[in-house]
Computed example of a mutant assay.
Amino acid sequence: MGFELPTGTDPVSIRKRIEAMEMLLERSFSVPGTKIPIGLDSIIGLVPVLGDIITTALGAYLVWEAKNLGLPQWKIWRMAGNVGFDAVLGVVPVVGDAADFFFRSNTRNLRIVKKHLDKHHPESRIIEG
């Protein structure tokens, strides 16, 4: 592969891993014929029960990385709440699949982590363009 993820525990490495996971889960593909981004969260979520378990575990990984980063407990709980809400929505057969397009818990959690990193670890900022 031409793409390697950093394995370090420094803020820059953790930020890159979280951003890569969010991209994979929420924006790695487009709906054919449109510009609507979807990711593995929406695709795997179509598999009843097992898909929801897998996507919840992948979302929990982002929360775990944020905990290792040292985010305050209230932000960790907020991120866990986003993942939990997404998991509860995913249990409802058709509503859960549609909700994956509108409630992107991983994107919300990435936003929480970025805001924390930009304030407390400004050296981890990456110029996006």
Rank of each mutant, 00 (worst) to 15 (best):
E4T: 14
S28H: 12
S105Q: 08
A87F: 14
P6L: 12
G96P: 05
D118W: 15
I126W: 08
D100F: 05
R111P: 01
A57M: 09
L117A: 05
V49D: 12
S28K: 09
I76S: 01
L5W: 13
T55P: 07
T56F: 10
V63C: 06
L71C: 09
N82V: 08
D100P: 03
K35V: 13
F102E: 12
F102N: 10
R111K: 15
I18A: 02
A98C: 05
E123D: 15
W77E: 13
P48K: 02
P122S: 12
S13N: 05
I18H: 01
L5T: 08
V31N: 12
G81M: 08
E65Q: 14
R125N: 07
W77S: 13
A57Y: 11
P72F: 05
D118Q: 13
D41H: 14
P32V: 09
D41A: 12
K16C: 07
L5C: 12
K35P: 02
L71T: 01
D86R: 02
M1S: 15
G70P: 03
G39V: 03
R104P: 01
V94S: 06
E123S: 10
G84K: 01
K115A: 14
I127Q: 12
K114A: 05
K16V: 06
K16P: 00
A99P: 03
V95F: 15
D100S: 14
S13G: 06
P48H: 04
S13H: 01
K115F: 07
V94A: 11
K35H: 14
W77G: 04
L40C: 07
M1A: 14
M21K: 09
S42T: 09
